[in-house]
């Protein structure tokens, strides 16, 4: 590892201050010294915005101020003179971190945030799947035109590196297909159903109680979330111009404990599998996975097998969700812009 001597200040804004946005602030605080020592970067948060309001300090918001916002004992200001878009445009900074909730209908408000940032000369790092699923090509062209980076490792597989793995570490390989479990909620439900022989409705309720499934679980259990991630992989890895409508999607709501038992008798488990290949096939369906296959991971884990022409099969397993896990991917995207 090369030790950097000069320190470069990187000013960032965090747009969307929910779990993931808070996680980003937290990892930057925790890793401040290490980032300076190993990468020569001093990451300063100069602006935070979400639906509740805005907080700006061009010299960098203090740790106390950010902690206060996270704990909720300090509130974002409602400002008539400044919206999130104004913050992105007018406050000087280098990287805009877009972590507002995913909207797969039209990608907003993330889409406007990202376009504004690129147009005003900022790099963008995002965990927001919506804008990339809706307007991938347009956004990439805009970034290229402005010579800015648009990075989105956190959108697929959370902490599990997949996009940069394919683009950097597997450079030179032809990628034949990517197959995997890209939704931890579905994996948790199917794993519990198989282990306990419980019906779907029962396990879904349990998952909601412990916060693994949302109150409205439809995006996860109907396979929509997995499909959107596949679209991002299709566009970024296979250079397609796909949208959500191009994906054949079947969810897990119909899976019965009996079916899981029959699968087990035959040496299989049932998993919600997303598949994309270079022929343009995009599919999210429950599939039989051999019990000894590397794709057979349990709990909320995510996994993906990348089939390549030179390296053969590569499988990555990791935590697919969680604020710190998503922040890990965002932090490495920020650092990689300056390496």
């Amino acid at each position: 590892m090369r030790i950097k001597t000069g320190i470069k200040t990187v000013r960032i804004s965090i747009i969307g201050f929910g779990n993931v946005g808070g996680g980003v602030a937290e990892v930057i605080r925790r890793k401040r010294e290490e980032i300076a020592r190993r990468y020569g970067l001093n990451i300063k948060i100069v602006g935070i915005a979400d639906l509740r309001g805005i907080s700006v300090d061009e010299n960098g918001l203090s740790e106390e101020a950010i902690m206060g916002l996270r704990r909720g004992d300090k509130k974002l200001e409602k400002r008539a003179d400044m919206t999130s878009v104004d913050l992105i445009k007018e406050v000087e900074h280098e990287v805009m971190v877009e972590v507002t909730p995913t909207n797969i209908e039209d990608g907003e408000p993330g889409l406007t945030h990202i376009i504004t940032a690129l147009e005003s000369g900022k790099h963008v790092v995002t965990s927001n799947k919506g804008p990339l699923a809706v307007e991938y090509k347009k956004l990439m062209e805009r970034a290229a035109k402005r010579e800015k980076e648009l990075r989105f490792e956190a959108t697929v597989g959370g902490a599990m590196p997949i996009i940069s793995l394919v683009r950097k570490n597997l450079a030179g390989n032809g990628i034949l297909s990517i197959t995997g479990i890209l939704n931890g909620t579905c994996n948790y439900i199917l794993t519990r159903m198989a282990e306990e022989g419980l019906p779907y409705e029962h396990v879904l309720k349990e998952a909601q109680e412990i916060g693994i499934a949302e109150a409205d679980p439809s995006k996860d259990v109907e396979g929509i979330d997995t499909a959107v991630k596949l679209v991002i992989l299709a566009n970024s890895v296979f250079d397609m111009n796909a949208t959500y409508k191009d994906v054949e999607v079947t969810g897990i709501a119909e899976i019965t404990p009996d079916a899981l038992k029959l699968a087990d008798d035959a040496g299989y488990v049932i998993k919600l599998i997303g598949e994309v290949d270079r022929e343009g096939c995009l599919k999210v369906t429950p599939r039989l996975v051999p019990q000894d296959d590397p794709l057979n991971v349990g709990g909320t884990m995510n996994v993906a097998t990348i089939k390549t022409d030179l390296a053969g099969d590569i499988t990555v397993i990791g935590k697919g969700a969680g604020p710190i896990e998503a922040a890990s991917a965002i932090l490495s995207d920020i650092i990689s812009i300056y390496r």
Binding site: E254, T256, D258, A259, K261, L262, A263, D265, A266
Partner: peptide, 14 residues
């Protein structure tokens, strides 16, 4: 191999 949990319910088969 068929599992039939009840008349009105969906069955599963391998």
């Amino acid at each position: 191999s068929v599992s039939m949990p009840g008349v009105a319910k969906k069955s599963s088969a391998s």
